[in-house]
Amino acid sequence: MNPSLLSTLSRNWWLLLLRGLFAIMFGIAAFSWPGLTLALLVLMWGIYAGLDGLFAIIAAIKGGTPAPRWWLALVGLLGLGAAAVCIVNPGIAIAVIIMIIGWTSIIRGIFEIVGAIGLRKEIEGEWWLILSGLFSILLGVIFVTRPGAGALAMIWLIAAMAIVAGIAMVLLSLRLRRHAKQAG
Rank of each mutant, 00 (worst) to 15 (best):
M1D: 11
N2E: 09
P3Q: 10
S4M: 01
S7D: 15
S7H: 11
S7M: 08
S7F: 06
T8W: 10
L9T: 11
S10Q: 00
W13I: 08
W13Y: 14
W14M: 13
L15Q: 13
L15W: 14
L16D: 05
L17Y: 01
L17R: 12
L21C: 07
L21Y: 10
F22Q: 10
A23S: 15
A23E: 13
I24C: 13
I28H: 07
A30S: 10
S32K: 12
L36P: 08
T37A: 15
L38R: 04
L38N: 00
L38M: 10
L41A: 00
V42A: 10
M44Q: 01
M44E: 11
A49N: 01
A49F: 12
A49P: 07
G50K: 00
D52T: 13
D52V: 11
I57V: 15
I58C: 04
A59M: 01
A59T: 00
A60G: 05
I61D: 03
G63A: 04
T65P: 01
T65M: 14
P66R: 14
A67T: 09
P68Y: 12
P68I: 02
W70P: 11
L72S: 02
L72P: 05
L72C: 02
L72I: 00
A73M: 13
G76R: 11
G76P: 06
L77N: 12
G81H: 14
A82Y: 14
A84K: 13
I87N: 14
I87W: 15
N89Y: 13
G91S: 07
I100T: 06
I101S: 11
I101H: 09
W103Y: 04
S105W: 06
I106F: 00
R108E: 04
G109L: 01
V114N: 05
G115R: 01
G115S: 03
A116T: 11
A116Q: 03
R120M: 06
K121S: 01
E122A: 09
E124T: 01
E124V: 07
G125W: 04
W127R: 06
W127F: 04
W128Q: 04
I130M: 13
L131W: 08
S132D: 15
L134S: 11
F135C: 07
S136V: 04
S136R: 12
G140L: 00
I142V: 15
T145Y: 14
P147S: 10
A149F: 14
A149Y: 13
A151W: 00
M154A: 07
W156T: 08
A160K: 11
A160F: 10
I163Q: 05
V164A: 13
A165R: 03
A165C: 02
G166E: 09
I167F: 11
I167Y: 02
A168V: 03
L174P: 01
L174G: 03
R175C: 06
R178K: 05
R178P: 00
A180W: 12
G184D: 03
